[in-house]
Amino acid sequence: MSVLVNKDSKVLVQGITGGEGTFHTSQMLQYGTNVVGGVTPGKGGTMYGGKGDDMFTRELPVFNTVRDAVTATQANVSIIFVPAPMAADAILEAIDAGIGVIICITEGVPVNDMITVRARLDQSNAVLIGPNCPGIITPGEAKIGIMPGFIFSKGPIGLVSRSGTLTYEAVKQLTDVGLGQTTCIGIGGDPIIGTKFIDAIKLFNEDPETEAIVMIGEIGGNAEEEAAEYIKANVKKPVVGFIAGQTAPPGRRMGHAGAIISGGKGTAADKMATMKACGIHVVESPASIGITMKNVLAAGGSKPAAAKPAAKKAAAKTSKK
């Protein structure tokens, strides 16, 4: 099992003929993702097989609209690579066409556009991941995003993160200690996103194959705290957490549009304290995510609060060597 996407997902690529769209479609096809077609307005009716170094393993039909593509291919997942000024429009088009899971990779979508998208999303059944995210991957089944597929492996860990490369770092550590993943979701670094921590945690909690959860947050907002309260009340599976930006100065935007401490709120210290109080195994160093999870599972702790003290000590010892 997995969450949101699997080998049966029929994936559409919005912006398939652009540079990013072409490169990552070739990568997704290589991974084995079931890409069924693409959308580029004005190029509908043609077949596209990539260009330059990025040739596809097979040619794909291109459509003018998402609705046309859904009618022809029954696509139920869409990944968006269109430039920021048109990205919100592309998300709205996908919602309108009845796509169930929409992944927006695009960075730099204006906040006001996302306010509109969010309101529309709340009235629909669609799930949005992103924007400004690496996408979602169910190892061995479907890579719908821009992550390097080779570092992931199949296994019992569900991972949700606001950051791309920090996800790769954590996944590499998990894979190195022998822990594969059910699904990894990069929810994105913007202030307004579709799927939040709490939504992803709910999905992992309900997924029978996910035995433990990694959540990687960062400064800004209070989505981590919101998820932590939910975990305290509802989640029996162990959760390991990290918050990036413990050394970030207030009032500065740390790369991600949403990573900013404003008015003294959204600090790493506050988030870590709340997460600890809610029974999450919080690591201070991003280098000990994998080993901590291994120790937590070895301690057999299914209830986060009960397993916490012993596991923390073990983690500190092991990471020293």
């Binding site: 821009i146 993160s161 606001r162 950051s163 791309g164 490369t165 920090l166 996800t167 790769y168 770092e169 670094g189 990687i216 960062e218 400064i219 990290f242 990036a244 930006g245 413990q246 050394t247 970030a248 500065r252 740390m254 790369g255 991600h256 990573a259 790493a268 201070e284 160093s285 991003p286 280098a287």
Partner: peptide, 30 residues
Amino acid sequence: MVNGAGLAMGTMDIIQLAGGRPANFLDVGG
């Protein structure tokens, strides 16, 4: 010097845990 904003923040944090203080945030991008 790091690629990705999250890993860049995480690297700053690790510098502090290692006994130093970060001189900068620098994300060179994907």
